[in-house]
Simulated assay, not measured.
Amino acid sequence: MAQSIPKIGWEQVSPAPVVLVFGKESFLADRAMQRLKSLLVMEDPELEVSDLDAGQYSDGALELIASPSLFDEPRLVRVANGVKATDAFITDVLRYLEQPVDGTTLVIRHDGSTVRGKKMLDAIRRTSGALEVACLPLGKGDMVPFARNELRMLEREATPGAIAALVDAFHTDIAELANAIRQVVLDTEGPVTEQVVRTYYAGRVETTAFAVVDAVIAGDVARALVTLRQAIATGADPVPIVAAFAMRYRQLAKVSGATGGGPQVARQLGMQDWQLNNARKDLRGFTDAKLCDAIEAIAHADHAVKGFERDPQHAVERLVRQLAESRAAV
């Protein structure tokens, strides 16, 4: 039967009689369960929290824990390891779903790696008032929006270049990315810029997208290709690499059409003084036609690395070679 309950992201989770936290991304699952507990505690600080392991479950334990207490305190029953649920647990959950206990929130974690408990999952998805929190691994295109949302939740402004730098350095592990964002926010003040990220995480960013862009802008074809291959060999993804090129060349395009200098012009362009000065240095030797060609090449590469070509690494190497050779010819 088709799923009938809402399927939401971790940041949308809210109290419900039954909540299924489903998917392989444990970091997002932990976030969902932490948020759910926080919301329930805000509703009533006397919340009673109980934990069960579905893989070591004994018959009747759910009914005992979920039953109303003498003083009717609200209850949160957190169930881990749903993917290894015992037959007794599945049977008890199916019985419980027929009449969930008022004031009790039952949250079940299942990573979806096997079909164990499918009958239970199907029943939850048919239960009126239940919710499913989708905790799927983030793809290439999801990391930048995730980082942007993390910064928004921390009430901190960040430049596109800073976000690209963070994703470029920590894209292989979502928990590392989230922790890196929180750390740089806690340890710095003011808007988070690319320079702040590159300074704070120098060891992680030294062979990443921005080092490749620097070599290309300098017209050093050999260094650009070597740096690119080092970045890819250490796990850098082509998508944020191309995003770094797009950010830098858009910046060059903005500066190429600006006249005057100083803080006022920099503010009008949404830049820092040093960014404006560096961009003007980088523009030496660029004609409007060459800049347009470069931006068009970056747009084509962006499509290529997002699934329009079979080999995204070849697409980004082609872009790097094309832009670096163009600069070297100046």
Results as ranks from 00 to 15, higher is better:
Met1Tyr: 06
Met1Trp: 08
Ala2Met: 08
Ala2Leu: 11
Gln3Gly: 11
Gln3Thr: 13
Ser4Leu: 06
Ser4Met: 06
Ile5Pro: 06
Ile5Asn: 02
Pro6His: 06
Pro6Thr: 05
Pro6Arg: 02
Ile8Val: 12
Ile8Thr: 10
Gly9Ala: 15
Gly9His: 13
Trp10Glu: 11
Gln12Asp: 12
Gln12Arg: 08
Val13Trp: 00
Val13Asp: 01
Ser14Met: 10
Pro15Lys: 03
Ala16Ser: 02
Ala16Phe: 00
Ala16Val: 01
Pro17Arg: 06
Pro17Cys: 09
Pro17Lys: 05
Val18Glu: 04
Val19Thr: 12
Val19Gly: 06
Val19Ile: 12
Val19Trp: 03
Leu20His: 01
Leu20Lys: 00
Leu20Phe: 02
Val21Asn: 02
Val21Glu: 03
Val21Ser: 02
Val21Cys: 04
Val21Tyr: 02
Phe22Asn: 03
Gly23Met: 13
Gly23Val: 14
Gly23Lys: 10
Lys24Phe: 04
Ser26Glu: 12
Ser26Gly: 07
Ser26Gln: 11
Ser26Cys: 01
Ser26Met: 08
Phe27Leu: 09
Leu28Trp: 03
Leu28Cys: 09
Ala29Lys: 12
Asp30Phe: 14
Asp30Asn: 15
Arg31Ser: 09
Ala32Lys: 07
Met33Ser: 13
Gln34Lys: 13
Arg35Phe: 07
Arg35Met: 11
Leu36Glu: 11
Leu36Cys: 11
Lys37Met: 15
Lys37Thr: 15
Ser38Met: 13
Ser38Trp: 11
Leu39Tyr: 03
Leu39Ile: 00
Leu39Arg: 03
Leu40Asn: 15
Met42Ser: 15
Met42Asn: 15
Glu43Val: 07
Glu43Ile: 05
Asp44Trp: 04
Pro45Leu: 11
Glu46Pro: 10
Glu46Ala: 15
Glu46Arg: 14
Leu47Gln: 10
Leu47Glu: 13
Leu47Phe: 08
Leu47Tyr: 09
Glu48Pro: 04
Glu48Arg: 04
Val49Asn: 11
Val49Phe: 08
Ser50His: 06
Ser50Thr: 07
Leu52Arg: 02
Leu52Tyr: 02
Asp53Gly: 02
Asp53Thr: 01
Ala54Asn: 10
Ala54Met: 09
Ala54Pro: 04
Gly55Pro: 10
Gly55Ala: 09
Gly55Arg: 05
Gln56Pro: 00
Gln56Phe: 05
Tyr57Lys: 01
Tyr57Ala: 01
Tyr57Ser: 01
Ser58Cys: 05
Ser58Ile: 07
Asp59Tyr: 11
Ala61Gly: 03
Glu63Trp: 08
Glu63Pro: 02
Leu64Cys: 04
Ile65Met: 07
Ser67Tyr: 00
Ser67Glu: 00
Pro68Trp: 13
Ser69Gly: 14
Phe71Pro: 05
Phe71Trp: 10
Phe71His: 08
Asp72Tyr: 00
Asp72Leu: 00
Glu73Ala: 12
Glu73Met: 04
Glu73His: 04
Pro74Asn: 13
Pro74Gln: 14
Pro74Cys: 14
Arg75Met: 12
Leu76Gln: 10
Leu76Ile: 11
Val77Gln: 04
Val79Met: 14
Val79Tyr: 09
Ala80Gln: 05
Asn81Asp: 15
Asn81Lys: 14
Asn81Met: 11
Val83His: 10
Val83Tyr: 12
Lys84Asn: 10
Lys84Asp: 09
Ala85Lys: 03
Ala85Cys: 02
Ala85Asn: 02
Thr86Asp: 06
Thr86Cys: 07
Thr86Pro: 05
Thr86Trp: 07
Asp87Leu: 06
